[in-house]
Write a protein that binds this DNA or RNA. Structure first.
Length: 476
RNA sequence: CGGGGCGUAGCGCAGUCUGGUAGCGCAUCUGGUUUGGGACCAGGGGGUCGUUGGUUCGAAUCCAAUCGCCCCGACCA
C-alpha cells in the first residue's frame, strides 16, 4: 500500500492546496480548461453551506426563485458600468439549432440584467415592495487564470436581488446581508473576517457601493468571501423600473444584490486544513464522526462490531459511519479519514470494550481522549463544539499575528514581500495611489474596514492627509 | 496574451539527447497469510506512446505543424 503524499505547506502552499482538494476527492479537473467537477465530498460541504445560508435568508424574509441561464446580449448593454465590467469575461452563445441566432445570448456572469427586466413587469406600486428574491444558480465568467474552487470558469453561488422604495431601506438591506455573511463565516466556517466597503476601483460594476467580507488564508493572503452591493437606482433606471408611491408620484426603485459562491469551500480549506489533509469545521462537516473498529484477530470482528452496535444504539440523532471494511488495516483507515477531514475519529477495539470505553481522536489537534462508552454520545457534542471553537480561535490568532498597523511604505513593502498578511494603513483616497500600490507591491486595498476609530494620518504612498486606515493585502 | 512545464496503462512517472517494435511504482483481478498508525507473498490482465504529416528498411525517440492541460504574471467572486 503506497503512501499518498500531500506536499507540505511550507514547501509549496499552492501545490498543497491542489493536493488536498484532489486527494480529499472534493473536486477534479474537467475536460474543459478552467472547469471542475465537484465530487460528492466537496458537494456535501456545499449542501451544508446552502442549508445554513438559505435558512438565514428565509428568516430575513427572502424567497427563492430561478431565472434563466441565457440573457440577451443587449440587456447587458443597458447599464454602462455593468457592461464594461462584465463583457470581457462573458461566454456568448451565437448559434442555436444549427443556425446563427438573430441576437447572441450571453451565459449569465451574474443576473442583475435579466432580473431587472422581469422586475419591470412585477413592480408597479409601493405595495409591491420590497421584493426580496434569491436564487441558487451557476454562472460563467471567462477568467484568464483559474484555481480549484477559488476561481473557476463556471461556479455555483447564490445571488440575492432585492427591490426597495427608499435609499435607506436598500442600504439597510445591503448591510443586513453582509451581516449574515459575516455570521455564516464566523459561526459555521470558523473563519474570522474583516467587514468593510470596497473602493471605487474595486466595487461591483454597476453598484453605488459594494461591501465585502475579507478573510485571511494560512499564507497570509486575503480572500473575498462574500459581497453585498447597494445598486442605488442604477438598474431601475437602466430597465425603467418605477413604482407609484403613497403620494401617487412615480419613482425609480432602489436595488441591492449580494452573493457568495463555491469559493467559500476554497476558503474553508485554506483556513483550516493541514499537511495531513482536509480539516472541516464540525458545523459544516457532512460526516462529523467516523468509527474505526479494530479487530486484532478475524474471530474478534463480530464481537467488536456488536459492541459498537450496542454503544451507538442511542446515536440516532447523529450522523456517523462505521468503517467496517475488511482487508484494510486501521492505520490505513485513519489516514484516509484524516485526508477527508472528519472532525472526530472514534476507535473501538477489544481492549476498549473490556474497559467499557471508546477512544476519540480530534482531527484539529490530534488529541486522544478516552471516554466511558456510556458518556460517549454526550461527549461527542462537547468535543465537536470544542473543535469548532478551537478552529475559529486559531484562525483569529493567525489573522491577528499577521496584521500590522503601518505608516512606513518601505517597511510595508518588505513585510508584504516576506510574509504577506494584512496591513492597516492610511490612504488619501486617490485612485493613483491605489494603482501604484498594486503595481509596486501586488497588494490591493481590500476594503475600508468598519471596525476602526477614525484617526487623522498621512497616506502611506503620497503623504497627503487621510482620515482613516484601509486594509491592504495581497489577495487571491 | 507573455513566461515556464507537461501530454507514454485507471493514476503517478521512466524511456526521447545517442531511432531497433515499451518499462517501473501504485491501483486493479485471483489465491493465501494478515489487521491497536498507510500489510505481505505468489500469480494474472491492461498502452494504435495527444493528433496529423514528413524523414527512415524501421519512429514514443528525429523534423514540421496542430490540439490540449497545468503552473507563474496581467483580469477577476
Amino acid at each position: 500500500m503506497a503512501k499518498r503524499t500531500i506536499t507540505p505547506r511550507s514547501e509549496d502552499y499552492s501545490q498543497w492546496y491542489v493536493d488536498v482538494v484532489l486527494q480529499a476527492q472534493m473536486a477534479d479537473y474537467a475536460p474543459v480548461k478552467g472547469c471542475m467537477v465537484i465530487r460528492p465530498n466537496g458537494y456535501a460541504i456545499w449542501e451544508k453551506m446552502q442549508a445554513a445560508l438559505d435558512g438565514m435568508f428565509k428568516e430575513t424574509g427572502h424567497q427563492n426563485a430561478y431565472f434563466p441561464l441565457l440573457i440577451p446580449e443587449s440587456f447587458l448593454h443597458k447599464e454602462a458600468e455593468h457592461v464594461e465590467g462584465f463583457s470581457p469575461e462573458c461566454a456568448v452563445v451565437t448559434h442555436g439549432g444549427g443556425k446563427p441566432l438573430e441576437e447572441p445570448l450571453v451565459i449569465r456572469p451574474t443576473s442583475e440584467t435579466i432580473i431587472w427586466a422581469m422586475y419591470k413587469k412585477w413592480i408597479d406600486s409601493h405595495r409591491d415592495l420590497p421584493l426580496l428574491y434569491n436564487q441558487w444558480a451557476n454562472v460563467v465568467r471567462w477568467e484568464m487564470r483559474t484555481r480549484l474552487f477559488l476561481r473557476t470558469t463556471e461556479f455555483l453561488w447564490q445571488e440575492g436581488h432585492t427591490a426597495h422604495a427608499t435609499e435607506e431601506e436598500a442600504e439597510e438591506e445591503t448591510l443586513r446581508m453582509l451581516g449574515i455573511y459575516r455570521k455564516f463565516a464566523e459561526e459555521y466556517m470558523a473563519m474570522p473576517v474583516i467587514c468593510g466597503r470596497k473602493t471605487e476601483k474595486e466595487k461591483f460594476a454597476g453598484a453605488v457601493r459594494t461591501y465585502c467580507i475579507e478573510a485571511m488564508m494560512q499564507d497570509g493572503r486575503a480572500l473575498q468571501v462574500g459581497t453585498s452591493h447597494n445598486l442605488g437606482q442604477n438598474f431601475a433606471k437602466a430597465f425603467d423600473v418605477t413604482f407609484q408611491d403613497e403620494q401617487g408620484q412615480r419613482q425609480y426603485v432602489y436595488a441591492t444584490s449580494w452573493g457568495a459562491s463555491t469559493r467559500l469551500i476554497g476558503g474553508v480549506i485554506m483556513t483550516h486544513s493541514d499537511d495531513d489533509g482536509l480539516v472541516v469545521p464540525p458545523r459544516l462537516a457532512p460526516l462529523p464522526v467516523v468509527i474505526v473498529p479494530i479487530w486484532p484477530k478475524e474471530e474478534l470482528r463480530p464481537t467488536v462490531l456488536e459492541g459498537i452496535d450496542k454503544i451507538t444504539r442511542d446515536w440516532r440523532d447523529l450522523k456517523f459511519h462505521v468503517d467496517a471494511r475488511e482487508g484494510y488495516k486501521p492505520g490505513f483507515k485513519y489516514n484516509e479519514w484524516e485526508i477527508r477531514g472528519v472532525p472526530i475519529r472514534v476507535e473501538v477495539g477489544p481492549r476498549d470494550l473490556e474497559k467499557e470505553q471508546v477512544v476519540f481522536v480530534r482531527r484539529d489537534n490530534g488529541e486522544k481522549i478516552f471516554v466511558p462508552a456510556s458518556e460517549a454520545r454526550a461527549k461527542i457534542d462537547e468535543v465537536l463544539n470544542a473543535i469548532q471553537t478551537n478552529l475559529f480561535e486559531n484562525a483569529r490568532k493567525r489573522m491577528e499575528d499577521r496584521t500590522v498597523v503601518i505608516d512606513n511604505y518601505e517597511e510595508m513593502k518588505r513585510l508584504n514581500e516576506e510574509n504577506s498578511g494584512f496591513f492597516w494603513a492610511h490612504w488619501c483616497g486617490d485612485r493613483a495611489c491605489e494603482n501604484r500600490l498594486q503595481e509596486e507591491t501586488k497588494a490591493t486595498i481590500r476594503c475600508l474596514p468598519f471596525d476602526q476609530r477614525k484617526e487623522p494620518g498621512k497616506c502611506l504612498l503620497c503623504g497627503k492627509p487621510s482620515s482613516e486606515r484601509v486594509l491592504m493585502a495581497k489577495a487571491y
